[in-house]
Measured scan of single mutants.
Amino acid sequence: KFGRVHERAEGPAKILAIGTATPFHWVDQSSYPDYYFRVTNSDHLVDLKEKFRRICNRTMISKRHMFLTEEILQKNPNLCSHNEPSFDVRQDILVSEIPKLGKEAVLMAIDEWAQPKSKITHLVFCTRSGVDMPGADYQLIKLLGLSPSVQRVMMYQQGCFAGGTMLRLAKDLAENNKGARVLVVCAESSAIGFRGPSEDHPDNLIAQALFGDGAAALIIGSDPKMGLERPIFEIVTTAQTFVPNGDCHLALHLREMGLTFHCTKDVPPTIAKNVESCLIKAFEPLGISDWNSIFWILHPGGNAIVDQVESTLGLEPNKLQATRNILREYGNLSSACVLFILDEIRKKSGREGLKTSGDGLDLGVLLSFGPGLTIETVVLR
C-alpha cells in the first residue's frame, strides 16, 4: 500500500561536471621552513628547523595554497603556538571561509554543467574544518541561492578518505532518486591544524609540511539529458573497508589547540600492503587483474605512500603521474585531493585527444585512504 515514493533511475550514476578552487595566497615549499619557523617564533630550535627542512624536501611538493597569511597569523598569535588554546579563533575563521571556498568550486562546476542551478536536488558536503550547526551545507545553500528544499547531508571530521566516500553516497542518491542531481562538495583548510613546532611531537612537522587548502565540487546524476549534459565518468562500483587496528597508525583529534595529527612510519607500507586486496575485490568480477590496464586516481597521502603503492603493485611510472602532479602543485588537500586528481586526469586526456576521459582507457580506480586506515575503492568508467 505504501510502496516506494521515489522512482529509481534507469542507469548508473555519472559525473557530469567538476570544479575546483583554492585560496589566492600560496607558499613556496622550498622556502617554507624559514617562513614557518619565523612566523611561529621558533628560529631558536635550530636542529628541529633543519629536520623540518629535510621533511619538506622529501615531500616532492612545490607549492601549497593556504588561507592563513602572515597578517592573519600576526593578529592571532595563539595559532602560532604549539599548545595555546586557539580553537575559537580557528572556528571564527573557518565557519565562514569553508563555505565560501566551496562556493567557488561549485560555481566552476555549474559553469561546466551549463544547467540551471535550480535542477540541483541534493547536496553532500564534506570538511574536517569549521564544525558548526547549522553547518557548512546550510551556509553554502544560502551563498548559492539554492532552494531550501535541496536535500542535504553534512559530513564533518572524515579525513583524507572522504573523497571516495562522497562518490559512494552520491551514487546511491542519484541511482535511487530518478532525476536527482547531486552536488558533491569537499572543502578543506590546513588552518584547522596549523600550529608551531615542538621537539616532543615530530608528527606535527609532517602535517605542517604536507597539507594545503582547496575545494572540489562535482555534479552527479543518472540518465543524463542527451544534448544537454556531457558525462565525464561513470561510477561503476564503490566499497569501503578499514585495516584492523589501523587507528594506531593514523589518527587526528580535535583539541583546544586545533586538530592534532598522529602518524607513524608504518602508514605507507601498511596501505601499500592492503591496497591489492581492495583492487581484487573490485575488479575480479570485471575480469581485470592487470593493474597497468586501468587508469589511476590515488590519494597522495605523501610521497612515500605513492612510491610504495607503485612499487608493491608493479605500476608503470606514468600510472600515478596525475597523483604526483597534484601533490606537487597543491600538497595533500585531504578529502578534496582525489577529486582534484580526477579533474587533472580528464583534462590531460582532453588535451592529448585521447579516446576516453581516463587516459584513453575504459576502466579505472579511485583509491582514497585516511584516519583509521580507512580505504575507499571506486571503480570508474
Rank of each mutant, 00 (worst) to 15 (best):
K1E: 14
K1R: 07
F2V: 10
G3V: 04
R4T: 02
V5Q: 03
H6A: 05
H6C: 03
E7W: 02
R8Y: 05
R8K: 12
A9G: 07
E10P: 12
P12Q: 08
K14V: 05
K14C: 10
I15R: 03
I15A: 01
I15E: 00
L16C: 01
I18M: 04
I18Q: 03
G19A: 03
T20I: 02
T20C: 12
A21L: 05
A21Q: 05
T22A: 09
T22S: 03
P23I: 01
P23E: 09
F24Q: 06
H25R: 12
W26L: 09
V27A: 04
V27S: 07
D28A: 06
Q29F: 15
Q29Y: 01
Q29W: 09
S30R: 09
S31T: 09
Y32D: 08
P33E: 14
P33T: 14
D34L: 10
Y35W: 08
Y35V: 02
R38K: 14
V39A: 11
V39W: 09
T40A: 08
D43A: 00
H44C: 00
L45D: 01
L45I: 02
L45C: 15
K49G: 03
E50L: 03
F52C: 06
R53H: 15
R54E: 13
I55R: 15
N57E: 13
N57V: 03
T59H: 00
M60I: 08
I61G: 10
K63E: 11
M66S: 08
F67L: 13
F67C: 11
L68E: 08
L68F: 04
T69P: 07
E71F: 06
E71L: 03
I72E: 00
L73P: 12
Q74H: 08
Q74C: 00
N76P: 12
N76E: 10
N76S: 09
L79N: 06
L79R: 03
N83P: 10
D88V: 07
R90M: 08
R90S: 08
R90W: 10
D92M: 11
D92Y: 07
D92A: 11
I93W: 12
I93Q: 12
L94R: 14
E97G: 07
E97K: 05
E97R: 05
I98A: 07
P99A: 14
P99H: 15
P99G: 15
E104G: 04
E104T: 03
A105C: 03
V106D: 06
V106R: 04
V106K: 02
L107C: 13
L107G: 08
M108C: 06
M108P: 04
A109T: 11
D111H: 14
E112P: 04
E112D: 11
P116K: 13
P116V: 02
S118M: 01
S118C: 01
I120Y: 01
T121G: 03
T121E: 02
H122A: 02
V124R: 02
S129V: 08
S129T: 14
V131S: 03
V131K: 11
M133L: 13
M133Q: 03
P134M: 09
P134C: 01
G135A: 06
A136L: 14
D137W: 02
D137H: 12
D137N: 12
Q139K: 14
Q139M: 09
Q139G: 09
L140S: 04
L140T: 00
L140A: 02
I141V: 05
L143G: 02
L143C: 08
L143E: 14
L143A: 14
L144W: 06
L146E: 04
L228M: 15
E229D: 05
R230C: 00
R230T: 06
I232W: 06
F233P: 00
F233L: 10
F233M: 04
F233A: 07
V236T: 02
T238V: 09
A239Q: 05
A239C: 08
A239F: 00
A239P: 03
Q240S: 05
T241D: 08
T241I: 13
T241G: 09
F242N: 12
V243T: 14
P244Y: 03
P244K: 09
P244Q: 04
N245D: 14
G246L: 08
C248W: 05
H249S: 14
A251K: 03
A251S: 09
A251M: 13
L254F: 10
L254C: 14
R255V: 05
M257Q: 15
G258D: 08
G258K: 00
L259V: 02
T260Q: 15
F261R: 15
F261T: 13
F261K: 15
H262C: 15
C263V: 10
T264P: 14
K265D: 11
D266R: 08
V267R: 02
P269N: 09
P269V: 02
P269Q: 11
T270I: 10
I271G: 02
I271T: 12
I271V: 04
A272S: 04
K273S: 13
N274E: 13
N274H: 15
N274Y: 12
V275P: 00
E276Q: 08
S277M: 07
C278L: 13
C278F: 09
L279R: 03
L279P: 00
I280D: 14
I280L: 11
F283D: 08
E284W: 04
E284C: 07
E284P: 02
P285C: 15
P285D: 04
P285A: 01
P285T: 08
L286W: 08
G287Y: 00
S289H: 11
D290T: 00
D290G: 06
S293F: 01
F295L: 09
W296M: 02
I297M: 05
I297N: 07
I297A: 13
L298M: 14
L298V: 13
L298Q: 03
H299N: 11
H299F: 11
P300Q: 04
G301H: 01
G302W: 13
N303W: 08
N303D: 09
A304V: 07
V306M: 13
D307Q: 00
V309D: 05
V309H: 00
V309G: 05
E310L: 07
S311D: 04
T312Y: 07
T312P: 09
G314D: 09
G314Y: 12
L315F: 00
N318F: 13
N318P: 03
Q321T: 06
Q321N: 01
Q321V: 06
A322R: 02
A322S: 05
A322K: 02
A322G: 04
T323A: 07
R324I: 08
R324W: 03
N325E: 14
N325A: 06
N325M: 14
I326D: 00
I326C: 00
R328H: 07
Y330P: 13
Y330M: 00
Y330E: 11
G331D: 10
G331T: 00
N332I: 04
S334N: 15
S334I: 00
S335I: 05
A336N: 14
C337F: 07
C337V: 09
C337P: 10
V338G: 13
L339I: 04
L339D: 13
F340E: 15
F340C: 09
I341Q: 09
I341P: 00
L342R: 06
D343S: 03
D343I: 00
E344G: 02
I345F: 08
R346I: 12
K347S: 01
K347F: 00
K348I: 01
S349A: 05
S349K: 08
G350D: 10
R351L: 07
R351S: 04
R351T: 08
E352Y: 03
E352R: 15
E352F: 15
G353I: 00
G353R: 13
L354G: 03
L354K: 14
L354P: 08
L354M: 14
K355Y: 03
K355P: 06
K355S: 08
K355W: 02
K355N: 13
K355A: 08
K355D: 04
S357L: 06
G358W: 04
G358L: 05
D359K: 08
G360L: 02
G360F: 00
L361W: 04
D362Q: 03
D362T: 00
G364S: 03
G364M: 02
V365N: 14
S368F: 02
S368Y: 12
S368C: 05
F369W: 13
F369L: 14
F369T: 15
F369E: 15
F369Y: 13
G370S: 13
G372C: 00
G372S: 11
T374I: 02
T374H: 12
E376K: 03
T377L: 00
T377P: 15
V378C: 11
V378M: 12
V378E: 15
V379H: 14
V379W: 08
V379Q: 14
L380Y: 03
L380D: 15
L380K: 15
L380H: 14
R381T: 04
